[in-house]
Every structure is written in structure tokens, then in C-alpha cells.
Design a protein around this nucleic acid. Sequence first.
DNA 1: CCACCCTAGTCACTTTTTTTACTATGCATT
DNA 2: AATGCATAGTAAAAAAAGTGACTAGGGTGG
Lengths: 189, 189
Amino acid sequence: MALRNALLVALIDRESSGYDLAKKFSVSVANFWTATPQQLYRELEKMEAAGLLSARVVKQDKRPDKRLFSVTEAGRAALREFTRRKPKPTTVRDELLVQVEALAHADVACVRTSIRSHVESSGRRLAAYEHSLAEILGSRTEDEFLATGSRIGPYLTLHRGISFERENIAWGRRALDILARRYPDPTPG
Amino acid sequence: MALRNALLVALIDRESSGYDLAKKFSVSVANFWTATPQQLYRELEKMEAAGLLSARVVKQDKRPDKRLFSVTEAGRAALREFTRRKPKPTTVRDELLVQVEALAHADVACVRTSIRSHVESSGRRLAAYEHSLAEILGSRTEDEFLATGSRIGPYLTLHRGISFERENIAWGRRALDILARRYPDPTPG
DNA sequence: CCACCCTAGTCACTTTTTTTACTATGCATT
DNA sequence: AATGCATAGTAAAAAAAGTGACTAGGGTGG
């Protein structure tokens, strides 16, 4: 029932297909919720059955048909009701940190490679979030936006995502430095 | 199969009961993995059956018996093998951020309350992580520790947890400020 | 003395999530 | 001509996770 709320939010301003949502969940929404495409399609069906969403089929030229979902009045009410409840504590599952915690018993070279690739994907997500933020701000400064803008919610979650990814990158680089000192590469000669 | 690795790490330096682990997962391990006590007990059983752990019962005075689990050679090998594989991407599920994203359609007073309580629990976790870090460092400076210490892995994951919680707190406070300006409390008079 | 919390679990059930493999079409490469 | 990639999904099963209730002794506060 939790993915449900994330879907309501993702759909509230714009009707989308499952496919659109899958992309959205791999970028902006990824910031606070992760889900696979299969999860999305299933949950969308259930939500339509529950009357939270309505769907219409759009035929396309040279492309498969798609079903566009939009939030119904009942869906809006459910979302508002959700915002009144106490949110469940954040859950994090980070295999990289499990590997790092196990460092003394690990294959350190592999862990270093994993950290490097983690830093890279944080860099990609950071760029995507910063791009979205720039889009939201438009030509306004942050102060102007904060005084008058309408998308304060997305602004705030994007900022959280941006600082999270920046910290990921800073942490990863520092970890690599420390590991390079403690576990130097075998140098030729 | 992923909780499994987190359990191997949590047990690798010290045999523990399910109950001990539940506490550990609610503090230090919470940093990178979350699990309920039921999950732990179940997974411990399976891991014992798979030969990754061995268990012994300890009778206690004035307390229920407990079963202490420790990692076997096969368990160590499995952990090392795990560190060689590419870690799965981090998953985050944060209902608070879903609520914030929905701000324009939300009960703002409730969301503000949720942010406040989120900031408070981050504060508690931060204090716990900083305490653990101080324990790891002992009387050494960070530089001395980094040059000679043996618990580099836990040091690094704790640092990640600390910066994460600090960012949570900073973000939450800023969000509350912004919301206070945009949605002022109804002032009497 | 009762209510409640701490230790140390177990059991049953339900929901959620992940994994794997499919169906189709069109477009651009090689 | 075959290959892979993007679009736009569907299906089924297995694994993992979450919820709630229960046992049982001991200690603590009011």
C-alpha cells in the first residue's frame, strides 16, 4: 500500500502510461522510492480497480497502444488522507555499505571497484536532479521561487536528492583515498 | 538473499543472539540495512540450516535461554564471495518525502509535524552513530586510526551514516522554515 | 497489586517485492 | 539479413518482508 502513494504523487499533475512511470521511477522519483516496472503495472491495475485511477487507451502511430492513467477524485482524497498519517520510518538497503562494513573480510580490490561505480552512478543521478531543479526554477532565483513558486514539494525533495548524491560522491572519494593508502596497489619494479 | 549478507557482517566479529541482532539492526546496522526482528529470526534459522552459521544455547539466570549464533568457515567464504559481486543499487523508501512531494495536495500541518519528528529521530540516530564512532576511535585521532586501525570498514559506514543524518536534519530544518513562510500559522488577533 | 516494560523468543498469515521470461512493432546499425 | 534498442506492455512464480498475536519470567513505578 506504500507504492500506491508514490504512484498517486507521480500521477497527480499529469496522466501517464506505465511505461512513462517506469522511466520517472528510474530518475526523479528514484530519489525517495524505488520500484520495478512490473510492480508499477500491477499496482496501477489494482488502483484502477479500486477507483483511485482512471485509464484510457491511446492508439499510436508506429507504436504500441498505451494506457494513460490519471488520478480520480477518490485518488486525490486518498493522497490527502495519506499525508495526514504518520509516515513509516525510512528504509534503506545498501549492499555497497554491507560490503564496506565487511572490509576486513572482503576482496578489497572488488570493493574498490564497486565504490568507483557507485560514485559514477551518483554523479549521473546528481546531474539528472540538478537538471530537474533548473527546470522547476526556470529563470527565477531560489528566493523568488520560494516566495511565489507553486512546486515547493518537488523543489524540496529534489534538494534532498541532490545533497544525498553529493554526499555519496564525497564519501566514495574519501573512502577510495583511505583504501588506496591502507591497501596500496602492487607497484611494478 | 540480501539480508543474509547483512547478517553475516553483523555476526562476523562477535557471536550474538537474535535478540542482540535485533537491537543492533535498530541502531548501527540501520545505517545501511533495515529488518524486523521476525525477519532476523527466520533468516538465522535458514542460515544455520545452510551451514553458514552455528548456534549454541546458553542458559541464563533469571532470563530466558538464548541461542548464540556465530559465523562458520562456510559463512566466511560466502561473505567474501559476496564482496566480489557487484552490489545491487541502493533502494530507498521514504514515505516522508512522498508526503513532501505531494505538498500541494497535502494536509500541510500534518506534513510539518512529520518533518519535525523525522528531524528528531535523525538526531537520535546521529547521536548513536557518533557514539559508536567515538568507541571505534578510542583515544586515537582520526589520522592515527586511519594509519593503523583495524576497523576501517565500520569507520567508513559510520561516517556515511553520520553525514546522512546530518543532511536529514539540515534539510528538515530548512524545509520547516520554508513551509513556515509559505503556509504561516493562523495567528490569533 | 496492577500495569507496563525488558529479555528472548515463536507462530501464522498477508502483503510486497523480485525474478524471469514472454509478446509485438519500428528504427537504426552493422 | 541479423542485431540490438526503444516503445509498451503481460504473466507467473518464488523470495522477501511486514503484521499481529502469543509464551514466559523478572523487574519497576505508582
